[in-house]
Computed example of a mutant assay.
Amino acid sequence: MSKSRRKNKIRGITTAKSEKESKKMANRRLRKRVNQKINKGEEQLPQLREVSDVWDFAKDGKIYDPNMKGKDMRK
């Protein structure tokens, strides 16, 4: 994969490389709440957006950066 390159000049806003831990915690929280509702016998289950807020994740979204050079385009 030494030749893999980004195709778009889009990058994360902060210096965090990944949101993996944030996504894991959000999905754990969702599964816990879903299991609690199922055990209570409720039929209305929560959605992921109701349980977590994407603004709390490590990366604060993405941005288009027209000034990205060749080195920045490497994965």
Rank of each mutant, 00 (worst) to 15 (best):
K69V: 08
V54I: 12
I63G: 02
R28I: 09
E42F: 01
K59G: 11
K69R: 14
K37D: 08
K75I: 10
E50P: 02
K59P: 05
K59L: 14
M73N: 01
K32Y: 08
K71I: 02
P46W: 06
K71H: 04
K17A: 08
E19N: 14
L45S: 07
K9V: 00
R49H: 07
R33T: 05
D72Y: 05
P46Q: 07
D65K: 05
K32D: 12
S2H: 09
K62L: 13
V54G: 07
K9W: 01
E21A: 11
S52Q: 08
K24F: 04
R29E: 09
R28T: 15
G12L: 04
Q36C: 03
K23R: 15
I10P: 05
M73F: 01
G61L: 02
N39G: 10
L45H: 00
A58K: 10
R74M: 01
D53Q: 14
R28E: 11
T15W: 08
L30D: 05
M68T: 08
M1R: 15
R6V: 10
A26W: 09
V54K: 07
A58T: 12
T15I: 06
R33M: 15
K23T: 11
N27D: 08
M68P: 02
E21L: 02
N39A: 13
R74W: 00
V51P: 04
K59F: 00
L48H: 08
K71E: 04
K62V: 07
K75Y: 03
Q44Y: 04
Q47A: 06
K75A: 02
R6E: 01
K32V: 13
N27W: 11
S52Y: 12
S4P: 03
S4F: 06
N35H: 07
R49I: 15
E50T: 10
Y64S: 00
K20D: 15
R5C: 00
T14K: 06
N8D: 11
A26V: 06
S18Q: 05
K3Y: 13
M25V: 11
E19Q: 12
K17S: 07
K71P: 03
A58I: 10
K32E: 09
